[in-house]
Design a protein around this nucleic acid. Sequence first.
DNA 1: CGTTATGTTGACCTCCTTCAAAGGCTGTGG
DNA 2: CCACAGCCTTTGAAGGAGGTCAACATAACG
Lengths: 236, 236
Amino acid sequence: MKPNCTNLEWVGRARCSVCDVRNFVLFAGLPANTLDSLLLPIDNLHAPQHHPLYGQGEAAAHVYTIRSGLIKLRVDLPNGGQRIVRLLGPGDLIGMEALVGDPYHHSAIVMQDADLCRIPLEVVRKLDQTSPEVHRALQQRWQRSVDQADLFITSLSTGSAESRMARLLMMLLQSQTTIHTEFSLPSREDMGALLGITTETASRIMAEFKRRGLVQMDRSIYMGCDQDQLAALAES
Amino acid sequence: MKPNCTNLEWVGRARCSVCDVRNFVLFAGLPANTLDSLLLPIDNLHAPQHHPLYGQGEAAAHVYTIRSGLIKLRVDLPNGGQRIVRLLGPGDLIGMEALVGDPYHHSAIVMQDADLCRIPLEVVRKLDQTSPEVHRALQQRWQRSVDQADLFITSLSTGSAESRMARLLMMLLQSQTTIHTEFSLPSREDMGALLGITTETASRIMAEFKRRGLVQMDRSIYMGCDQDQLAALAES
DNA sequence: CGTTATGTTGACCTCCTTCAAAGGCTGTGG
DNA sequence: CCACAGCCTTTGAAGGAGGTCAACATAACG
């Protein structure tokens, strides 16, 4: 029986002591038995593309660490539109606003198939108090959120649509763990929501990039690019 | 003798136990003598408009709390331009990246005459460990930074230049402690850097707002506005 | 195999940038 | 006190970038 997962594959109770990415996620440096002794359910989840983890405004009881994949944080705007304010990958922590008692500030949706750990708030709060390593790691994650947000302002919301798109592509490359391999690009609609432009403009720019040989792709699968030329475009 | 302040008025060693804004800045809830017992210099500073508090990339040894005034955080872009990524006011904490050992990520510059407390890193680190109240306050400040950054993405980097300007004006109103009174508006250049538009466009929009009676102002001093109409424009 | 989402392209028009010039305010020195 | 320089703001004209609306193509899907 899957615990409150509609559509979501529950892989099992997380066994953090043997987690392969443990050393770069939140609990790096913890003694092996500390987590097990908490007796609180840290669930290991696999979520497919387009799956929503949580919605903006929902009461928050968990934070999530990303083991693999890519998650988007989306904000619904008062005038009906929506804007993606963050892209998060392996090692990132999402839903941290829960730690200060807030409801979720965004809708979190899977962009590339993801493995996640869902951690109850109490676990994080407890470890924050008892483990200096976790406490430091938590501060670093918080700072990382700020840095990511700043990057969205300076890189994806500044300059011409073309250079913003170039920066987005390089950012996506960066976020891939396995370098130089294929991965699924965001839809044109998502690109628009990421860059603050319309779907049509996103499409036009991508089509133009493809024609100019700046990026190779098949359907929506990335298959290589000219990083030098993209970098040049990024600094217009 | 003023301690390493070029141009900056040193008001005195901070006496936190009698600080009038103490209850909404970082050290709310601390026993009165805790801070004095640290024997570390928390300086109380007054900084005039345009004064730089620190520069992007500098080694960071202090965080600052804002007692009054308005501070802008600016990022220098690789292509020579610059973008303002945050506006911070009373109760806000700036330079938090210092806590994780980073150099300052922005240049912090005074936009409206400010009273500040400059707090050595060690003081904050110490209190973070020893006082649960400060620890919670710190988390809240970190989350606030994230929220502010998100607001810059969704409100000041999304939609037409006109609606973004309307949102900026409402945001500036919000940030004033003394409501319905006069205050100095940012220069057109700063408005441009805040909204990701050119100085000329910022000027045109403000001139048009003035003509339409949406804002009243004398030189660069705000003197009232039509909040309803601005709010309507903000949601275009 | 139709149906529906998603991507592409075209035409047109608006908004914003760019470059240029003029006006206004401030401070300084005569 | 006035003249002048320097800075910021305003405004104009022209071109370009992006939005809008619509048609069409292509891929995804039951």
